[in-house]
Nucleic acid binder design. Structure first.
Length: 602
RNA sequence: GCGCCAAUAGCUCAGUUGGAUAGAGCAACAGCCUUCUAAGCUGUGGGUCAGAGGUUCGAAUCCUCUUUGGCGUACCA
């Protein structure tokens, strides 16, 4: 697991404000304890002062519950809150802000004018970097995700994997990490041989060009064909195993077919990546790393970490971690999933000595990674403790589970096209063709935002139901809604720029932002950095998604109820335009973390 | 059988250092467009936070047990 920096981390504006008040309240509590109880020791038993956010804005912006001290002071928490408010309010060197009591809570209303001014400066100064922090500064973090098989195209499950991997990488970078995104192409093994055998038997020299379909889909067709063939003639299963043996022995004919078909699949997959905004810094191929895995396992046998059965297979006994025995090499000497992952990990650490390697892989493989990490530790690699499995749950459909046998697996390309077409028809229905310009490109951006947002708004750990039509729905908590808010602000700013010269002499005045919605917006903007930290610490993109929705919803209500460009006075127009510009900057920065394209118009 | 994970509104999901009346969206119903893009805004109804115990001033949140569901426990990946 990645360890964030401790106190070195830069604190955000809201954190600073909270910390300042917290220290003040703590100090006053201690002084008061000394006065009435004779000693501050009485507070030792009580937990340290907790800081929270009041549930309603009317109650203030920062809250200190007094429950925990009631016992020490033998006083109702309400009374204690009042006393502390009175004592603190009497001080002359208080930071700006207002103390109030709400029942058993001592709350602080922060000075929005000052905060707005500070936020305005930060957002303008930092721009696209606003919200970024340094809790992972100096850390080299490798993130593995996607990892397609070369015998079929990507499906909906990969899309969740890709979305999480891409988002986590962006979030870690935003927290200062040096991130290397890596893919592992699963291009060898019995399953790969299956599509090759079927192609040999039924292919008739068909190619993606001659068939007019993407290479990954073509190869996938033969993988499915093999399954049918296998049903009719169970003997072919052994043929696949024989072919794998030949492949590992370097049989030229097998290798040339393998190269050809792998190329087809990878070309097709590359196109899907391009459409869905996925990219990698480095590709690993199991065909290149499995030998290192095999050698390492054999070394392990010599070291006595593993043992060989009479039939030649190699095993590890996992009693130490309360698991069973696990095979590492087959009796025919060919390697397995685990074997090649050992080689891959070692070769990666050699290439780029990471502080952490995060595997974004479905939770069904939790056991596999537990074993893998243990094996590497037993082999004596000190970095084995830096490996982390980010498990995510399954993606189901409203109709139930996706089952390849029943053909209910949702193909990634088909889904993306379907979403794009829905977006296109919506643009046409709203007669926005001229406004958006390139309808196809805009529709693809909407489809992508819809897809990523839907997939990322759910906590990765949980299984989820993916509803395609709901994801692209243009009303409600969806990607298109978020994009729409960005487009609306962009449109306002464009209109403002036409008259900007009339406002040249007018400076931003934060004290004019006195509406409830404005206070809330300023606070939300100020709190973005904390959300980025939280998302990084927990490896959880859904924190960003939730923030985006909250900010968008609040902005939406704000501009609906209050004029921006036609605000009653020029200074107010300036202040409000500046505020919504800040909202846009933060929206864009947050979009970038969850794969939502920014659209100037939609 | 054993292990890991989950369970919050009819549906999909938020909700962590334990804290104020548990929140959104969809669906339903009712309003709002001569006004910065109505892909919007507002309101109404809707909850045994799976159940039972426990810890605590205070539990959706922590602990124990139970129930239900998912996943795993391959010489597949």
């Amino acid at each position: 697991m990645v360890r964030p920096h401790g106190a070195n981390g830069e604190t955000t504006m809201m954190q600073q404000i909270r910390n300042t008040w917290k220290e003040l309240v703590e100090k006053e509590l201690a002084i008061y304890a000394t006065e009435v109880l004779g000693t501050a020791e009485a507070l030792q038993g009580a937990p340290s002062l907790t800081v929270q956010k009041p549930p309603k804005p009317e109650l203030g912006d920062v809250a200190f519950p007094m429950f925990a001290y009631a016992k020490s002071f033998r006083m109702a928490p309400n009374k204690l809150a009042e006393i502390l408010r009175d004592r603190l309010s009497a001080k002359s060197d208080l930071p700006i802000g207002e103390l109030l009591v709400a029942g058993p809570y001592l709350n602080v209303r922060v000075d929005i004018a000052a905060l707005a001014t500070e936020v305005h400066q930060s957002v303008n100064r930092e721009g696209d970097a606003y919200g970024c922090g340094d809790i992972f500064a100096g850390k080299k973090i490798m993130v593995e995700f996607s990892c397609p098989n070369t015998n079929k195209p990507l499906h909906l499950g990969h899309l969740r994997n890709d979305a999480i991997g891409e988002s986590i990488s962006a979030i870690l970078k935003a927290n200062g990490a040096d991130v290397l995104k890596v893919n592992l192409i699963n291009n060898r093994g019995v399953h790969i041989c299956k599509s090759m055998l079927a192609y040999q038997k039924f292919g008739n020299g068909e190619t993606p060009e001659s068939a007019g379909i993407k290479g990954d889909h073509l190869v996938g067709k033969y993988y499915v064909k093999f399954a049918q063939w296998e049903k009719e003639d169970p003997g072919v299963t052994a043929m696949a195993q024989d072919m794998l043996k030949k492949w590992e022995e370097g049989d030229p004919e097998v290798l040339s077919l393998w190269t050809l078909m792998n190329g087809w699949t990878l070309d097709g997959v590359a196109e899907t990546y391009k459409n869905t905004g996925i990219s990698f810094d480095k590709y690993y191929y199991e065909s290149n790393t499995y030998m290192l895995g095999k050698d390492t396992v054999l070394q392990g046998v010599r070291k006595g970490v593993f043992y060989k059965e009479d039939d030649g297979s190699v095993w590890i006994d996992l009693a130490e971690i309360n698991l069973d025995k696990k095979v590492l090499l087959r009796k025919d000497g060919t390697s397995l999933y685990l074997t090649q992952d050992i080689g891959t990990a070692i070769s990666r650490h050699g290439d780029w000595p990471f502080d952490s390697l995060i595997y974004v892989v479905a939770s069904e493989q939790t056991y596999h990674f537990k074993v893998l990490f243990h094996v590497l530790e037993k082999l004596g690699y000190p970095w084995a403790s830096d490996l982390h499995h980010l498990a995510y749950g399954m993606v189901n459909l409203p109709e139930g589970k996706m089952k390849s046998r029943e053909g209910t697996v949702v193909d990634a390309d088909d889904l993306f096209e379907q979403l794009t077409l829905l977006a296109m028809s919506e643009i046409k229905e709203k007669e926005r063709e001229n406004a958006v310009g390139d309808v196809r490109a805009t529709s693809e951006a909407i489809a992508l935002g819809a897809l990523n947002y839907f997939l990322l708004q759910v906590n990765p750990m949980k299984d989820m139901v993916f509803n395609p039509s709901e994801s692209i729905s243009f009303s409600g908590n969806t990607g298109p809604y978020l994009q729409y808010m960005g487009a609306r602000i962009h449109s306002m700013i464009r209109k403002f720029s036409e008259v900007a010269k009339d406002y040249e002499g007018i400076a931003f005045d934060g004290s004019l932002l006195s509406l409830q919605e404005e206070r809330e917006l300023v606070k939300l903007i100020a709190g973005f950095g904390e959300v980025v930290q939280e998302a990084g610490r927990d490896l959880n993109p859904s924190a960003i998604a939730a923030y985006l929705y909250e900010l968008s919803r609040l902005f939406s209500k704000y501009y609906h109820d209050h004029p921006i460009l036609k605000a009653p006075s020029a200074p107010l127009v300036r202040a409000r335009v500046s505020l919504v510009s800040m909202v846009l900057q933060v929206l864009r920065n947050a979009y970038a973390l969850v794969g939502i394209p920014f659209l100037e118009s939609m």
